[in-house]
Simulated assay, not measured.
Amino acid sequence: MKSEIPLDTATTRTHCAQLTASPKGASIGRRIARQQLTSWGLNSAAPDAFHSALLVVAELATNASTHGRVPGRLFELALTLASTPRGGTTLRVEVSDCRGDRHPAVPASCADHSQSGRGLTLVGALADRWGSIPRHPNGKTVWAELDLPDPA
Rank of each mutant, 00 (worst) to 15 (best):
T90S: 12
L126A: 07
G100I: 06
P47C: 04
L42R: 07
L122V: 14
T89I: 00
T141E: 11
P47K: 00
A33R: 04
V93P: 00
N138S: 15
T20K: 10
V70E: 14
T62E: 15
N63I: 01
I133T: 15
S44D: 12
L122Q: 08
L126K: 07
R13F: 09
H136T: 12
G87W: 01
R13W: 08
G139W: 01
S27R: 10
L7S: 04
L126P: 05
I32D: 11
V95T: 13
N63H: 07
L91C: 05
R129M: 07
F75Q: 02
T38W: 04
V123W: 10
R30K: 10
L120T: 01
A127M: 00
L74Y: 10
T62W: 10
H15E: 12
L7C: 02
S65V: 01
P6C: 03
S22Q: 06
I5V: 14
H113M: 06
D8G: 01
G87P: 03
H113S: 12
S3H: 14
P71E: 13
S39W: 03
R129V: 07
S132W: 15
A49T: 08
Q35Y: 12
T9Y: 04
T20Q: 14
R13C: 02
V123F: 05
N138I: 07
A33H: 02
T20R: 13
I32N: 06
T84Q: 08
Q115V: 12
S27N: 12
T9D: 09
